[in-house]
Design a protein around this nucleic acid. Structure first.
Length: 432
RNA sequence: GUGGACGUAGCUCAGCUGGUUAGAGCGCAGGAUUGUGGCUCCUGAGGUCGGGGGUUCGAAUCCCCUCGUUCACCCCA
């Protein structure tokens, strides 16, 4: 073989057979469940005006400052491949005045996202998400419902031992003073912190809680926690969310380290961690964003949502031994022995497919043995032989591959015979 | 962007400290008294040993560069 001239770009991949089926399973099950929760699917562009992401996600975030694929057009406009879906949905929500409908409005969107990161296990430059957004409800029951939905989807997929981590990031009123307080504390202990954390003091102080260095973790035990300085309203909101979650079921643990990297999050934030993944083990995460709609030029409408990482979820399923798909099999394989009966063969194949049977034949003029092997490889339930003898007698040889029993079935009885063996199928533009 | 590991047949990998025509398993193709699968057996196709340069009588094997993959950091789904 020759070296391939072209390969998929770094961080992208071709998703081939069993993997495709597992992903389809994830998407199918999620769609069905989202329907039960009254969500509507929305398809938004894979690229938007760069400005939308800058405003929405935040100029200083890593995503916007160094991970976006941006490009221009002839008129000098700047666009970016979407690094996440929330901004696009919020934009569409405002653009189509969907806030004039009765609240809340529930939407979801499935598709690829793009970030120019260095790939590693569970992190790619093109990755797929199921993105779910609930707009127009600031009540804590909405938070609980959204979180429960997220867990419900994973439960439905058969994933176990997941950890749901919950935190509150407060609002504009309580977060700013807290930030000051935290920075003050960090400055005091700055000498004992790692280089990264010293950087983080000015870039994104909340992130220090996520540091893995033991020295930092030790110092941070004494640090002020956001949870304990939430304003009265945020405090109450958070308490209510926990109460609602309590009655709904999903176990969770409070984790002040959960600090999302997108600027728009307020109040409830959450992550779902899989035990079977590597460093990138968050398979679903989200939170509330009460100012985002307004920041994007819409009315002051609260929102919250989450994204499920399809790639990571699929990997977690694979590692947990969850196939998520059925092994493929074939109803019928039609074999012919002589070349001039190929017209007869393909005609019958066509008829059977229109009757809703999955059916295949050989196109490469293989020997009978080879055709049988092929039929076996495709896991055909039944093999139909069309040969000189059969034509002369007006019958077809029909072999049950599981039992190896074979009998002769008259032409006109074939369909009834197959219905009896395989069950009736939904017809696909059946002829005659 | 930073760091580690690895790049040998379509896939998973052997190939000891450099030595003649580079191997296995799986997969693929064909066959085992000529119209019949799965098991077994036989045969075959398929590799410029990621690419380039260097050291050497001689390099898949050593050195440098480069590209790619992978894992981790940063960050995130």
């Amino acid at each position: 073989m020759v070296e391939p001239k072209y390969v998929a770009p770094t961080g992208t991949s071709d998703i081939l057979s069993p993997e495709v089926e597992r992903r389809n399973c994830i998407v199918d099950k999620a769609r069905r469940l989202l329907g039960l929760y009254c969500y509507q699917e929305m398809i938004v562009p894979t690229f938007e005006h760069t400005e939308l992401f800058v405003r929405g996600i935040g100029e200083a975030t890593d995503i916007v400052s160094k991970e976006m694929y941006t490009f221009g057009d002839q008129k000098g406009s700047s666009f970016a491949l979407r690094p996440e879906a929330t901004s696009g949905i919020v934009r569409a929500f405002i653009e189509h005045s969907l806030y004039t409908k009765s609240m809340p409005q529930k939407y979801f969107c499935i598709g690829p996202m793009f970030r120019k990161e260095k790939p590693q296990a569970g992190r790619y430059r093109e990755f797929y998400q199921i993105d779910v957004e609930l707009l127009g409800a600031e009540q804590p029951s909405a938070d609980a419902e959204v979180i429960a939905l997220l867990m419900h989807i994973f439960q439905d997929l058969g994933l176990k031992n997941l950890t749901l981590k919950l935190n509150s990031m407060g609002c504009r009123i309580c977060r700013a003073p807290y930030r000051e307080e935290l920075v003050g504390y960090l400055r005091k202990v700055e000498k004992g912190l790692c280089r990264n954390c010293r950087e983080r003091i000015k870039k994104n102080p909340l992130r220090v809680f996520d540091c893995k260095v033991e020295g930092c973790r030790h110092l941070l035990r004494e640090a002020p926690e956001l949870i304990s300085v939430l304003c009265a309203q945020c405090q109450e909101h958070f308490e209510e969310v926990k109460k609602y979650l309590g009655v709904m079921g999903p176990d969770y643990e409070l984790d002040p380290k959960v600090v999302r990297g997108l600027d728009y999050y307020t109040r409830s934030v959450f992550e779902v961690v899989s035990p079977s993944l590597g460093a990138q083990n968050v398979i679903g995460a989200g939170g509330r964003y009460d100012y985002l709609v307004e920041d994007c030029g819409g009315p002051p409408i609260a929102g919250l949502g989450f994204a499920i990482g399809i790639d990571r979820t699929s990997l977690a399923m694979k590692r947990s031994g969850l196939k998520g798909y059925e092994d493929k099999s074939l109803d019928l394989f039609i074999i012919t022995t002589s070349h001039h009966l190929r017209f007869e063969t393909i005609k019958r194949l066509d008829i059977l497919r229109h009757q809703g049977f999955s059916a295949e034949m050989d196109h490469l003029s293989r020997s009978m043995k080879a055709q049988m092997r092929l039929a076996d490889k495709l896991r055909a339930k039944i093999v139909i032989f069309i040969g000189e003898d059969e034509i002369r007698k007006g019958v077809l040889g029909v072999r049950d591959m599981a039992t190896s029993s074979q009998e002769e079935v008259p032409f006109e009885d074939l369909l009834d015979y197959l219905y009896q063996k395989l069950g009736r199928k939904e017809k696909w533009g059946a002829r005659g």
